[in-house]
Write a protein that binds this DNA or RNA. Structure first.
Lengths: 208, 208
DNA sequence: AAATTAATTGAACATACATTCAATCTATAA
DNA sequence: TTATAGATTGAATGTATGTTCAATTAATTT
């Protein structure tokens, strides 16, 4: 008996507002009081659902990493086609995910990982699972002889190094044309690693 | 007449302690009061030399970026040899600079760049100058026919993408062996880009 | 209707923060 | 020696922080 618990739902609501405020004003400028004000609730209610601010922060990190994982949604099905692999590459080198999660916050918590082991492990496991997913996709493409990639795991790693390295620099680039050209260049490098001629797939690739 | 100004020297002292404390406890946990306590001076003295905390933070960022630039010290002289280029590559793929500046803080302020235009410009200009320096080094090696790199600028960019992308992932890797192996692999990729056979240079490269 | 469980509020807490201002101390030049 | 400019202190300010606790309100079951 008693009242139905809203814990899960309420926690998510709070995290979403936390995310929203932190995106706008920065994580370090986002207090429990601010979140409460935006939600028009009492700050102590937030403490009621998350015992400490630390817990709340971990909640936000999980939220962001889940969305980070979500954007790539690398297919796990058996019936992988070359077009699936290609769509994945296109996705990795697009900037669609900006709509799903904030780069600034992603890097903020990445920086935090250097001092907090828990966060480091979270990030590591997410990054690993993405690499693993891409590697097994390449493997299945190999099996069906769509590709002939020698070492799928190494190839997947290298592609992600390109992705991460490219965005690290390009996030600072304000010239949109330069941005697009560079990204396109690195994308072609990725296709090269896979032994795929991007010209053959031209129909599916939007012109740069 | 009057007293000699200590401004410059004192500012540097303060920044160095700021760096030290922030490295240990994180930027967001480092207050003016904490810095003052470590230095055994009054907090208001810090405000006297840096009008606001913002100014102090910019000072720290400049300090870190200067050191970041310093570690690479790409030679600017005319007499560039193949060994100079090679030393640069070795340096880029070593982790020596950990002694000079803290990765965690470097990424902390990198994350801040997403919200603060001034910081973004600082980072961009540092990253660009490194790329430019490497590109012109390659060019001079081309002139002397040590290398035959088609597009030195693009090659330099690509090498830095490898560096940045590799460290982005590897900073989360705690397995030292895996860390070293991966780094070595990406370094070889860099040599490949330059058309240099790393085996020919084996004497200068420490075994992985 | 009564009992129970959870949601929510509101007041209060100690603490830490960046910054201010006036006062004092100290080195240097005239 | 005296005037002066800068170094340094110390007290004070107002604001924001995370967290606590008791009190109240609302939903659900018996």
């Amino acid at each position: 008996m008693g009242r139905k618990s809203l814990k899960g739902a309420r926690q998510l609501e709070i995290i979403k507002i936390f995310y929203k405020v932190a995106k706008k004003e920065g994580y370090e400028n986002t207090s429990i009081a601010k979140i409460a004000k935006v939600m028009d609730i009492n700050p102590s209610l937030i403490i009621h659902y998350f015992e400490t601010k630390e817990d709340l922060t971990y909640g936000l990190i999980d939220y962001i990493l889940e969305r980070y994982l979500l954007i790539y949604t690398i297919k796990d099905k058996e019936g992988v086609t070359l077009s699936d692999l290609q769509k994945t590459i296109e996705m990795l080198f697009s900037k669609k995910w900006n709509l799903l999660f904030d780069d600034g916050l992603f890097y903020t918590f990445y920086a935090l990982a250097f001092r907090e082991k828990k966060i480091k492990e979270k990030y590591k496991s997410i990054l690993d699972s993405l690499r693993f997913a891409l590697a097994s996709m390449i493997e299945r493409c190999n099996e069906k002889e769509f590709t002939k990639v020698e070492d799928p795991k190494t190839a997947a790693d290298l592609i992600f190094v390109l992705v991460d390295g490219a965005y690290f620099y390009l996030s600072l680039e304000s010239d949109k044309k330069a941005y697009a050209e560079r990204l396109h260049y690195y994308k072609n490098k990725a296709y090269q690693i896979l032994g795929i001629d991007p010209l053959l797939l031209a129909d599916l690739i939007p012109a740069p």
